[in-house]
């Protein structure tokens, strides 16, 4: 966790520096009062200042690794999974990414059906029958609710579904 805290804090520093660099390309002042670059610049500065405190706090946590603290709220690691939770988490994460990226390419029905199939079977560990029923029913329900009733043009695959 301490490593993660430090990395997180350094990300803030990096974001702050990037912001300052980009904000300097925008005019700082307008004809009257602040220009478009005013707020971003000071936000960048604020982030850098805050990140100094964040880094300090993270390092202090490292120094005081007293056993009493071991049970404190956030003493568990960033990647601390419950036993056996890692594989389902990874599958869940990857299928979440996949459904968002494939939504347009595969059409919503196929991508969401596949998402349900994978998550129900290997994340929620259901047996095949309910998995298949949910994987088929969900896109149909969504189609009826969103496309037919609410008339939201969800992306359809070439066959029109």
């Amino acid at each position: 966790m301490r490593v993660a805290e430090t990395i997180g804090a350094l990300c803030v520093t990096l974001l702050g520096i990037t912001t300052i660099a980009l904000a300097r390309q925008l005019p700082y002042e307008a004809e009257y009062g602040p220009g478009p670059g005013f707020l971003p610049l000071w936000l960048g500065v604020t982030l850098v200042v805050l990140s100094v405190f964040l880094v300090r706090n993270a390092l202090q946590e490292r120094a005081s690794v007293a056993p009493a603290d071991a049970e404190a709220d956030h003493s568990q690691g960033f990647w601390q999974f419950a036993p056996g939770a890692f594989a389902p988490w990874l599958i869940f994460f990857v299928s979440t990414l996949a459904v968002s990226l494939l939504l347009e390419r595969l059409g919503f029905a196929l991508s969401i059906g596949l998402f349900m199939l994978v998550t129900m079977r290997w994340v929620a560990r259901q047996s095949w029958l309910p998995t298949i029923i949910l994987a088929l029913a969900t896109p149909i329900l969504l189609y009826l609710a969103f496309v037919r009733i609410l008339m939201v043009p969800l992306p359809l695959a070439p066959p029109g579904f």
């Binding site: 259901q126 309910p130 029923i133 949910l134 329900l141 009826l144 609710a145 037919r148």
Partner: peptide, 26 residues
């Protein structure tokens, strides 16, 4: 197992109802 079955059944019923209500409009 029972609850999963029940859920699936509810889902199917809803699909059926939605279909019948929609076919009239379309």
């Amino acid at each position: 197992k029972f609850r999963i079955w029940a859920m699936s059944l509810v889902a199917l019923l809803t699909v059926g109802m939605a279909f019948t209500s929609w076919s009239g409009q379309a």
